[in-house]
Amino acid sequence: MKSIKYAFGMSLIAMAMSAGTAQAAKLTLYCSAEEDWCQVMARGFEEATGIDVNMTRKSSGETFAQVKAESSNPKGDVWWGGTGDPHLQAAEEGLSIAYVSDMRGELHDWALRQAASADDKTIGIYSGALGFGYNSDLLAANNLPIPACWKDLLKPEYKGHVQMANPNSSGTAYTTLATMVQLFGEDEGFEFMKGLHANINQYTKSGSAPIKAAGRGENTIGIVFLHDAVKQAASGFPVVPVAPCEGTGYEIGSMSIINGARNLDEAKQFYDWALTAAVQSEAWKVKSYQVPSNMAAETSPDAPDLSTIKLIDYDFAKYGSSDERKRLLQKWDEEVSILPQ
């Protein structure tokens, strides 16, 4: 009996000691990019600094919901990745704090504009242009012409072949809606959405689902960010990305430090590290083809070259505000989504 008690006592002490030594520096990372990229960021930072990283991957909408729910007792330190709007919204609601990194000198203008519009509470880490992609096998099988412009998608022969996400649930689809309003003007933009509605076979919930369905042959044309289309092509699916001829909108993937972070120093260290060229050059190796915000970062030869794409002057402040968003979504709900297909 005695020896059992002794052994029990010793193991308790051993557990206690191991718990004691585990008090090393740590960082809780909320990641809203693709799983592989998130893994690269988390493991890379651990290797570079020796700081333990606890990483959770969720979509930007889910992460925003979580950060908001946890706001009176935050668990996370840094929120990295995901489209810019929820980051801007978090900044607007005081869920993130301002930080001016020393790395700013190396960044593209658009990354800094993102920071400026949120009082330095967020910053651009990558960007991607909107467009669409098609499954070349299915297009050929159905004898359909190759679409090149937004307006091509309205042609009746594409009926039942186009997929996009529901703007109510997806940031990507909301970007599409806002892009049409800015590109064609509000009235003509909504006319476009109505015409498109007739050809849509499904409004998916998630933003990149349409092109993934196209990759698997479950859909012909998907309206998505171009880097998502490129990724499908690079993964071996018969997908061809198209940058529309009229010009297009774009997103700025962002990063924020959470207000009330328990490991603020480590969070700032991660923030600086994530903006370096060396780190951002890793992205395309895990098939994330967004354009990095560090000007010196290298990109994949497959990645869409933003300089050759006609980009509109996207007004993030206006179309990212919750009032404008609510108004456009309500209008879309009432005028477009109820139409028969």
């Binding site: 979509s59 925003f64 919901a65 929820p86 109510n168 649930s169 499904q202």
Partner: peptide, 19 residues
């Protein structure tokens, strides 16, 4: 597909772009 049911609508009302 386009067949909306309550459980997913609840989920997307909370996590979606409209919080």
């Amino acid at each position: 597909g386009n067949y909306d049911v309550l459980s997913t609508e609840i989920f997307f009302a909370i996590v979606g772009a409209q919080y």
